[in-house]
Design a protein around this nucleic acid. Structure first.
Length: 472
RNA sequence: GGUGGAUUCGUCUAACGGUUAGGACACAAGAUUCUCAAUCUUGCAAUAGGGGUUCGAUUCCCCUAUCCACUACCA
């Protein structure tokens, strides 16, 4: 499910729940050519994982079923015929595309709009395929008060005689949504602003039927930034844009929901991190705005990182494990410790492997890393410290965190150093990295005694080699 | 082309005629820390342009520019 669709669903959910209303799931599957096996399950999965629980729907029923449009075919036909009788719709026997002119006006040329009843009957009797089109009034204007966009009005003369019932007997979305929304007692319709232009046609259908119109809440679309800096509707080329893909990358559902709630809506307060319940409590249509927003992975990362940091450590340990890919390695037994180091340092689970790669294998590194002004660290001082550290650690039997900490603290005191200057070269030798999750003592503990001593002495060798080169 | 819509820091946004135009992300600096994160402090940075209306416009009106959507027997 595309993030844009999920955002629309989220706002519908938040609005419904904040008004003590019902959130209804209806499957709109009237295009048989686009049927995709399993896509309905994706919708169920996404809604469940995201925490958008519907009150009525195909899977759980309700008083207004069926909730799948392909099972309501007869209903649409009946209402389409009712419109024909009322003169608000007509049979059209034109072949698809036959009457679409390339002229400025575009659209269907209304060739069949005024066929006589006899002509219509003759064509039908001859078995000619047909569609039913809406007879749009040629004059007048149609307007409504959108809860987000305000008063919008459109000249009827600019509207198309759109198809209501297709030649395969299925309704178009444009027709089915009106019929179903009325029959299912929908009071508020929340959808993307791409429907703004077609809304007058829907209103004319309500008028033709004599039905009361629902309230409309159109939402600004979500854009993405292209490589060249331009902006267009969010799509795959901007990165992962389906909810499943983001979850698979290790974004938390609650993080994704939190972030997309902030795209096109702002709360009254300056709060930015929300749980679903808080969103429901604070959601209000006044906070929805009209201009489109650009989806920003960086801010999504920050929001998600906040949620990860807030996670119960036990939950983090459990859920992040599979991303670490340490099953069966020496690190597995130390995962709780490693996880505690990672929790505040990642924005999504998939950041983990890269962050901990150095634990598996010492990367090649430059001895320049040993030189650090603030810790008064030079190649010479580093070599001396590493030698002392090896001497002390090689005789240490209790390789626990507490023991390692006290040993290193003692060593620092004996050398007349603070802990920082002492651990700088140790951490470099252990990791080969400028920055690591956790400090020298954490890393000693994590990689174990043998590997630690090995890395420390290889650090000494590296420095010695460098000195030789320098002397030459 | 036609129709509709939009336009505040790079990004998400607040301010519904009177503010030194606020917050957040990102970025930068500092504090803190066994490095990095996290946390705290500080800094940088915006009302698309032009006309009106008004004592006073980010806010109301008009024009221009730019962007977006729709213009399917797709939803």
């Amino acid at each position: 499910m595309h993030i844009g669709n999920l955002r629309t669903a989220l706002f519908a959910y938040l609005f419904a729940k904040s008004q003590n209303g019902k959130f209804i799931l209806r499957i709109e599957d009237t295009d048989q050519g686009r049927y995709v096996e399993g896509s309905v399950d994706v919708i169920y999965d996404t809604l469940r994982t995201a925490g958008l629980i519907h009150d009525e729907g195909p899977d759980i029923g309700g008083s207004y079923g069926p909730y799948t449009q392909s099972e309501r075919k007869d209903i649409y036909r009946k209402y389409a015929l009712e419109l024909v009788e009322k003169g608000a719709a007509y049979y059209c026997f034109c072949q698809k595309d036959e009457r679409e002119s390339e002229s400025a006006e575009g659209g269907y040329d209304r060739h069949c709009r005024n066929l006589s009843p006899e002509e219509v009957k003759a064509q039908i009797d001859a078995g000619k395929p047909y569609v039913i089109r809406q007879r749009i009034p040629l004059e007048g204007t149609t307007s409504w008060n959108d809860m987000v966009y305000g008063e919008i009005s459109v000249e009827n003369s600019t509207l198309d005689d759109q198809v209501l019932l297709k030649s395969d007997g299925m309704p178009t979305y444009n027709f089915a949504n009106v019929v179903d929304d009325h029959l299912m007692n929908i009071t508020h319709i929340i959808r993307g602003s791409e429907y703004l232009s077609s809304n007058p046609k829907y209103l004319l259908l309500y008028q033709a039927f004599g039905w009361e119109t629902p309230r409309y809440i159109h939402l600004p679309i979500i854009n993405g930034r292209n490589a060249d800096g331009s902006i267009s509707k969010l799509s795959k080329r901007h990165g992962a844009v389906s909810f499943q893909a983001l979850v698979e990358q290790g974004y938390l559902p609650e993080g994704i929901i939190n972030y997309i709630a902030l795209l096109g809506w702002s709360p009254k307060s300056e709060q930015e991190i929300f749980s679903m319940d808080e969103l429901i409590a604070q959601f209000s249509v006044d906070g929805v705005h009209k201009s489109p927003a650009v989806f920003d992975y960086q801010k999504l990362g920050w929001v998600n990182g906040q949620h990860i940091t807030m996670l119960d450590p036990q939950v983090f340990i459990r859920d992040a494990f599979r991303y670490a890919r340490i099953e069966g390695t020496a690190l597995e037994s130390k995962w709780p410790k490693l996880a505690s180091l990672l929790q505040s340092r990642i924005t999504k689970y998939s950041d983990i492997p890269e962050k901990i790669a150095f634990l598996h294998q010492l990367p090649e590194y430059s001895t320049e890393l040993y030189i650090h002004k603030k810790n008064k660290s030079t190649l010479g001082s580093s070599k001396a410290i590493l030698e002392k550290a090896i001497e002390r650690l090689s005789t240490l039997d209790d390789w626990s965190e507490e023991s390692l900490l006290s040993t290193m603290t003692e060593l620092a005191a004996e050398s007349g150093l603070k802990l920082g200057p002492l651990t700088w070269p140790v951490r470099i030798a252990l990791s080969g990295l400028m920055a690591t999750p956790g400090g020298a003592i954490d890393i000693l503990y994590l990689i174990g005694k043998d590997e630690s001593l090995k890395r420390l002495s290889s650090g000494i060798q590296l420095i010695s080699k460098e000195n030789l080169v320098d002397e030459k």
